[in-house]
Design a protein around this nucleic acid. Sequence first.
DNA 1: TTTATAGTTCGGTTAATTCCGAACCAATTG
DNA 2: CAATTGGTTCGGAATTAACCGAACTATAAA
Lengths: 163, 163
Amino acid sequence: MSCSEHKKKLIEEVGLHFEQTHQISPLAARIYAIMILSPYEGHTFEEILDITCASKSSVSTQLNLLIQLKKVEYFTKPGDRKRYFRASKRYLINTLQENLESINAEIKFMDKISEFNAKYNKNKFEKYGEFSKLFKGYLINQKENMKDTIEKMSNLTEELTDK
Amino acid sequence: MSCSEHKKKLIEEVGLHFEQTHQISPLAARIYAIMILSPYEGHTFEEILDITCASKSSVSTQLNLLIQLKKVEYFTKPGDRKRYFRASKRYLINTLQENLESINAEIKFMDKISEFNAKYNKNKFEKYGEFSKLFKGYLINQKENMKDTIEKMSNLTEELTDK
DNA sequence: TTTATAGTTCGGTTAATTCCGAACCAATTG
DNA sequence: CAATTGGTTCGGAATTAACCGAACTATAAA
């Protein structure tokens, strides 16, 4: 099943989004998009070649990159040598978790700046400090909020995979 | 005032952070870092040259880029031809606002995916749908949360600039 | 044991990014 | 007016990223 025009267009669109938000190459983003657009269904290597019109080597490399990043996983079928690639079942959770890490990085960053400013820019720091306190408070708040959602999603995952 | 070793190291560190989170070139990120590490103080073109050890042309280009992105602004002093560059006073708010936009993009993206899946992957969608609903709910929640913080910061800005 | 399938690896090409130096411009100073 | 200061602009060099083709490997089937 090659791919409808509508879907091809969507793959480009979603791919572009992934390219920007996940910091991966255009081809990797397109491959990921293909899989997001049919969750739970596996795609063979050949199908991906066919849809992306890219070379075997590029698809191989980028696919392995996505697997390494845990964005993509694969399963096999008995008596079938092919691998079936699909978006990692936990990809929404993973996206959240990546976000969580970037918030953590932001907080660490704010700490560094605050520490430096408190030491060397003390006189100007009062004003600046209020902002950074507000910002940091916001970040920590977000973090808690996100943890909560991740937990809910994890529960949902277990519930579903148990069946 | 050239720059202490400690500060130089910090500039590299913070620069790296900006490079990744703001999607700008290494030099632009370093320049931005320099300014973040002394808020309210202006830096001259020469100082930046001196600290970064980059060429005039590169500094000029990247500085103008940062100005265009509203990350950096400049002021002048009477009877002084130089411009004094500093991080935009609203840079924390701007960072939040950029985040807000990326959340908006994420929501739009979720809509696209959901719409497509509801149409073409209906049978598998029940499970998947619960996740995406949860995720979307989270995003919208974040958005509201962020709007609130932006408002608080804006108020603070007005309050401070009035004085 | 040859052949086909399902990928992987390596070397290289192309394209894009990042940065530089040299020439330039516009305002000020002597 | 010539010289200095504070940048800007342009053409290109160096680096990096993205992708390709061809040769290769490992498994299985004929």
